[in-house]
Every structure is written in structure tokens, then in C-alpha cells.
Simulated scan of single mutants.
Amino acid sequence: MMTAGVACLSVNDALAKTLTAHYAPLQILFLRNLIAFPVALLIALGMGGRAALRSHRPGAHVLRAVLWIGATLMFFTSLMHLGLAEATALIFVAPLFITALSAVFLREHVGWRRWAAVIAGFVGVLVVVRPGSATFQPASLLPVATALTYAALMLGARWVDPRESVWTLLLYLTGTSGLLSAVIVPFVWVPVRPGDLWLFAAIALFGTAGMTMMTQAFRLAPAVVVAPFDYTALLWATVLGWLIWHEIPDRLTFVGAAIIVASGVFTVWREHRVKA
């Protein structure tokens, strides 16, 4: 379930990269949410019933939607300048940011082993980004900022009333981010070409399916079992980048990605051991 969900989100990212050639990231986000909302509504009703439509703390959903919009816009913008595999590799620092933010803002205990993994992960980021070198691109910082915002979004789930199901979170995240993006999308709107309509429909379909399957995966198995499969996204991103744009990441990108993945897997495993 997790692997299938990750594959769907990788296709979603590839479609977004294709669409950024003609549309602003905000317009892509708005149309994706507009098309995906009815699907999310049906999923929420089917899995959670009418109770899934009720929020006990709507302000939390608004704040999470703002973070979601920021993360998506930064990542879609990065795809305009970076290879799909490179951007995906940098996104993998999100679990490390979650660990660091949990320690700083939530006062959770993080041992020296997990701090070492966080530091190692950021060393991997430096290997991929290579600041100061001739190959450095400022756009490489966008996926890292995306990962930080995404980490805040994940921790923001704690602000949501515990009586609300994951289906309520999915529904309100899609709907609220769609409403908020609708306010400013007129400033960047360009007419949608008829031949691109299927791409927008596909990005909504794959994005919603990916999020739903990944959510369900965490319901079916412990996080320590499920979470490492998130890193299969690098395989999908590499294959899709090669097939569509003939992108081949260089050796240092793979080395840095391997360090980030190893750090993330260790962090998940160590957190499970500590809680056990």
C-alpha cells in the first residue's frame, strides 16, 4: 500500500513538472485541489461517514492548509529548475526536520544517536546541493525549505482535535487549500489549453490516490515498518526523470541521497526503539 502510494505521488510530481512549462505552480495547485475535492469528499464519506465532515477545530485546518500551500508551491517551483530525482532526494530530509522541530518546539527528548542522524542527513544535503561549487543552483534550496514546511505540517496534525479521523484531515486539507489558493490564483491565471485538461485530471487523481494509500498504510502497519518504503520515491523519480526528460543524476547526487535515506531510516527505527 505504501509503495503504491509513493509511486502515485511520484507520478503526481512528474505531471506537475510537465505542467510548470506552461502554468504557474499556484494555478496547478488550485486546479488539482478543485478536481480532487469531490474525490476526497467521497473517500471521507465512504471511510468515515458524515462524522468525517465535522471539524472540532477548523482553525487548525486553516493553518495546516497554509503550510501545505507553501510546501507545494516551493516544490513545484523547484521542479522548474531541478531534475525530478534531485528534488525528490532533497525532500527526504523532512523526517530529520520533524525530529529536530520536535526537540526544539515540543520539548521531546531526542538522544544523541538521533541528533547524529540529523546531522548526517544534513551532510547528505550538502553533498547534493554543493554550495559554493560551479554546479550549485539556488533552486536546490527550495526542496529543503519544502521539507521544513512539510515537517511543520506533519507536526501540525497534533493541533487537530483527536476526535477527528485521518479522512477529515484529508478532506479539509484539500478543501481549505483549494479555497485559499482560489483567492490569489486570478493574478497568475492563464487559459488552460484543452490538451492539458487530462494532465490536470491525472495530477488530481494520482495525488489523491497517493495520499489516501499512504494514509491507509500507516493505519495497517506500524510506522517503523511502513515509513522506510517512502524512500522508493527516489527510484520512481529517477526512472520517470530518465524516461521523460532524459535526466541522469550525477554520482554525488546519489551519494548524498544515500546518506539522507540512511539517516531517515535510522531516525524512524531509533524512534520506534525509544518508544518501545
Rank of each mutant, 00 (worst) to 15 (best):
A120D: 00
V125S: 02
L126V: 08
V128E: 03
P131F: 00
S133P: 01
T135M: 11
Q137T: 12
P138R: 15
A139W: 02
L141I: 13
L142P: 01
V144A: 00
A145N: 08
A147S: 12
A147W: 09
Y150C: 11
A151K: 11
A151Y: 00
M154V: 08
R158H: 04
W159F: 13
V160D: 02
V160W: 02
D161G: 08
S165F: 12
W167P: 00
L169M: 14
L169R: 12
L170C: 10
L170P: 08
L171T: 14
Y172R: 02
T174Y: 04
T176Y: 00
V183E: 05
P186A: 04
P186L: 00
F187K: 07
V188Q: 00
V188M: 01
W189Q: 04
V190F: 12
P191L: 02
L197W: 10
W198R: 08
F200R: 04
F200V: 03
A202F: 06
I203P: 06
A204Y: 03
L205V: 15
G207T: 14
T208D: 07
A209R: 06
M213S: 09
M213L: 15
M214V: 15
Q216S: 13
A217I: 11
A217E: 07
R219Y: 08
A221H: 03
V224Q: 12
V224I: 14
V225A: 11
A227D: 06
F229L: 10
F229T: 10
Y231M: 14
Y231P: 15
L235Y: 06
L235G: 02
T238L: 13
L240H: 08
